[in-house]
């Protein structure tokens, strides 16, 4: 009888017992759901590749003589267009800034077959949904006399490499 009384009074007024139980409940919940959450996140860590084996972003495209004056040569596999004007040379991207289709040379510059973006010969947007002009990439003359393009470095449109 005395024990019963003590227990009931402990649950009603003291509250120490219930709060401990609640605390343990919370800890269990946080532990379980936290572990589940971490496992889910670790799945994404797993499927995110640490190394990729794409094409090199910096490459040689040949000697300046390969690009006669006044020509525009699309190097499809590289996704660039080499523009040669007099002694000046530049590399313009042929990957549409909209959704990544490959633009084709058109009379007015470049045109994209996927969603109708249009660019002028310098890569400026003249129509369609493309949000940005086609980027220009850094072009340098390597010591061996070959032209080197680095697609990781975008330069101001209109800045040419003078040979």
């Amino acid at each position: 009888m005395a024990v019963n009384l003590k227990r009931s009074s402990g649950e009603d007024s003291d509250g120490g017992k219930t709060s401990r139980r609640r605390m343990l409940g919370w800890l269990t919940g946080v532990g379980l759901f936290g572990s589940a959450g971490l496992s889910a996140v670790s799945n994404f860590v797993f499927i995110k590749p640490r190394a990729t084996y794409g094409q090199p972003q910096r490459f040689s495209v040949g000697k300046p003589e390969d690009f006669p004056e006044g020509t525009r040569s699309v190097l499809g596999a590289r996704g660039i267009c080499i523009v040669r004007e007099g002694t000046k040379l530049a590399a313009i991207s042929t990957t549409c800034t909209h959704l990544g289709c490959t633009v084709a040379s058109a009379e007015t510059g470049f045109a994209c077959p996927c969603h109708g973006s249009r660019f002028d010969p310098d890569g400026n947007v003249t129509g369609g949904p493309a949000p940005r002009p086609l980027p220009w990439f850094q072009v340098t003359l390597a010591p061996n006399g070959e032209i080197e393009v680095d697609k990781d470095i975008e330069i101001t449109p209109g800045s040419y490499l003078t040979l």
Binding site: G76, P113, C114
Partner: peptide
């Protein structure tokens, strides 16, 4: 042919509405 998309490059019919919307704006349409 990674160099040339077909011209025009069209999705199956049920995504053509989406493609049409995307042709106005990539973010808003897509």
């Amino acid at each position: 042919n990674a160099l040339h998309p077909p011209n025009p490059a069209k999705a199956p019919w049920y995504f053509l509405g989406l493609q049409e919307m995307v042709s106005y704006s990539a973010f808003w349409g897509g």
